[in-house]
Design a protein around this nucleic acid. Sequence first.
DNA 1: GAATATATTCAAGCCCGCTTAACTAGTTAA
DNA 2: TTAACTAGTTAAGCGGGCTTGAATATATTC
Lengths: 147, 147
Amino acid sequence: MQTPKQLSEVVREWAEVFMHRSGRDFKRFMDTTGLSFSQVNILMRLLHGGSAGVSEIGEKIGVTNAAASQAIDRMVQMGLIVRTEDPQDRRAKRLELAPKGRDLIEKGIKARIKWIEDVTNSLTLEQQEMIISALTLLTEAARTTED
Amino acid sequence: MQTPKQLSEVVREWAEVFMHRSGRDFKRFMDTTGLSFSQVNILMRLLHGGSAGVSEIGEKIGVTNAAASQAIDRMVQMGLIVRTEDPQDRRAKRLELAPKGRDLIEKGIKARIKWIEDVTNSLTLEQQEMIISALTLLTEAARTTED
DNA sequence: GAATATATTCAAGCCCGCTTAACTAGTTAA
DNA sequence: TTAACTAGTTAAGCGGGCTTGAATATATTC
C-alpha cells in the first residue's frame, strides 16, 4: 500500500461520512428557509467567490441564465442578495450577498457541521491540534487552485 | 484565542470550501444519472447504513412514506436498489443497494472529491501523512456517534 | 376472530423550478 | 447610424417530485 493510495482511501471514507451526515441537514435547511437546491448553491458561491454576474452564476451552477435570473430574483426580494447595476457595463448586474443572506448561509453551514464539533470535543487536545493543522493545510491548498 | 474556538473556525472554513466545490459536482451527478436530490440521499444512506425499510428511509431523508416509496421504486426499476420482502414481517420491505447502485453512488462520491486528490498531490509526504492521520481520526470519531 | 394498528403502495392533483423563446436595454463595430 | 452582439428579464408551458387520502396486505391485540 503506497501512501497516495492510502490517502485517497481515507479521503473517500471521510467524504462518505461527511456527505451522509450533511444530507439530511441540507434538506432541512432548504425546507426551513424555503430555498431550492440551486438557490443554496448560489448563496454558497457568492459567499465563497464574492460578487458575480447572472449568467456567470447560471453557468457555474449548471442552469440556464433564465433560471438563474429567476432564482436570484426571488432571493433579492427576500433580502438575501443585493443586485446592482454594473457601472462599467450597464447591461450587466452585480450580485452580492446581503448581510441577511450572508448570515443565513453561514448559519446553514454551521448547522451542517455542528456534529463535527460534537465529535471533536471528545478528542484530546493533541488530536485537536493535529486536525487543526491538517484542515488548515487542506483549506489553503484548495484555495490556491480555485476554479 | 482558545483551541476550541480555533478548531471550530478551521472546520467551518474547510466545510465552506468543501461544500462550495462539491455543489456543482453534485448537480452534475444528479443530471447525468437522472436521479433527484432525495434519491441520491437514499443511495447514500443505504451505502452507509446497510439495509432499511421504506418508512425508515422516508423519515431519515425528510419526506413522506409515499414519496420515499415512489423514489425507491424508480431506483428499483433502474436496478440500483434490491427490494425484498422482510421474512419477519411480510408487510415490510427490506431495501439494499444493488451492485449497480453501489457502484454508481461510489463513483459519484469519487467524482465529488477528485479535486481533493489533486490538491493533496502537491503536498509533501509528511503533510499527506498528517492529513491521513487527522481524517482517519475524524472518521472514526464520527462513526462512534452514529445517528 | 373481529377490531385495530402498521408497512407499503396507488391515485389524483398541486406546486415549483426549469427550459425555450421572445423581448428590452446597452455595447461594440462597420 | 445602422447592424450585430451581449446581459438580463419576462412569459408560457412542461415535467417531475411531493403531498394527501384511499386501498391493500399483514400483524397485533382484545
